[in-house]
Design a protein around this nucleic acid. Structure first.
Length: 335
DNA sequence: AATGAAGGCAACCGCAGAAGG
DNA sequence: GCCTTCTGCGGTTGCCTTCAT
């Protein structure tokens, strides 16, 4: 493969660009266009390689570059596109006007990737991590929740104690209990099935662990419910991340999240279709419905409602970690 | 105020594929 | 069809800034 010597050439400047160099490059391209990048530096009077010039232009000097913080919408778009396209930064960048692939890549590596990991998702697959060490946070959260419920049960009315745990009014205790049960069920099922079929447990456990308290566990339960809820909007006062289902080419689902209501514009959706992403083909060419939290007070069977996609419903084994919790009445009670 | 750690970002490196001779 | 050149892309590095102690 013939690779141009480019930057290997001696005597060419490397490192940060000076304002003078920027000005020369800008002036030249505005006047002549970039043409051949290889010859550009010489013609523009720059002691740089063409590659360096191209990079500087595309990532910094281009007039249509949008700078500054990524908006929630952009963030959500990146998450969605990454869940479909993977590390195809240039492809993702084409759907974010004014953003460069480099900028998106940096934003992913410094922000979004970390957040996904924190929430218990594999940043590459956008699905819950189910290997043992990755599942440790889930196990710890589970144990913590078990202890709290056991303590509450020992002290009297479990539902009242549960309500106390998260500071909810008495009217919410049924929903809280249901959310817990649903959370546990999703958690366990997600670990049972293959990575491809899981959705809600990882994110929920990650959220719980990050906060180290019962409130977070409840938030996690709500998040789990949100992940698999068939419809609705965010529950009043819920401050946790909103999880969003994303179709995959294998017909399975993964979750993305946002701090606010998920925003996928019709433009983005249309562009996704243009991409011919397999994940959308399997959903009849449209985005799957966005998840929400609306019905926490009406605990339907969230997992089974989306059994084929979000929680790996229909899992052959009802119990994912028999070696860890043999005969634990707390676990069996929930299954 | 000083110092070390962590985060953020611009830039570089090397590979792969397209284009042209 | 093969070889060379060029461009584009993704991964990685290193510097600068901000934050915590």
């Amino acid at each position: 493969m013939g690779r141009s010597p480019c930057c290997d050439e001696s005597g060419l400047k490397k490192g940060p660009w000076t304002p003078e160099e920027d000005e020369k490059l800008l002036q030249y391209i505005q006047k002549n266009g970039h043409g051949s990048w290889r010859t550009l530096p010489r013609l523009a009077g720059l002691n740089r390689c063409g590659k360096s010039c191209r990079l500087r232009w595309t990532n910094y000097l281009r007039p249509d570059i949008k700078r500054g913080k990524f908006s929630q919408e952009e963030e959500q778009t990146i998450l969605h596109l990454h869940s479909i396209l993977g590390n195809k930064w240039s492809a993702i960048a084409t759907h974010l006007p004014g953003r460069t692939d480099n900028e998106i890549k940096n934003f992913w590596n410094t922000h979004l990737k970390k957040r996904l990991i924190q929430m218990g998702f594999d940043p590459m697959t956008h699905r819950p991590r189910t290997d043992f060490f990755a599942a440790l946070p889930q196990l710890i959260a589970l144990a913590s929740l078990r202890d709290q419920l056991a303590a509450a049960a020992a002290g009297g009315d479990p539902s009242a104690a549960a309500a106390q745990m998260q500071g909810a009014s008495g009217g919410a205790d049924v929903a809280i209990q249901a959310a817990k049960m649903q959370y546990l069920q999703c958690l366990l099922q997600s670990a049972t099935t293959t990575i491809a079929s899981a959705c809600c447990g990882g994110a929920s456990a990650g959220a719980a662990i990050s906060a180290h308290d019962a409130d977070a566990a409840l938030a996690a339960a709500a998040a789990a419910a949100a992940c698999s809820s068939p419809q609705g909007t965010s529950s009043p006062g819920s401050s946790g991340p909103t999880l969003t289902a994303v179709g995959h080419s294998d017909g399975q689902m993964a979750c993305t999240f946002s701090e606010v209501a998920p925003v996928i514009t019709s433009d983005v959706e249309a562009n996704l279709r243009l991409l011919g992403a397999d994940g959308f083909a399997c959903h009849g060419g449209s985005l799957p419905p966005l998840a929400d939290l609306s019905d926490v007070t009406n605990p339907v069977d969230w997992c089974s409602a989306t059994a084929s996609s979000s929680c790996g419903g229909g899992a052959s084994s009802p119990f994912p970690w028999p070696e860890f919790f043999p005969d634990d009445p707390f676990i069996t009670d929930f299954l």
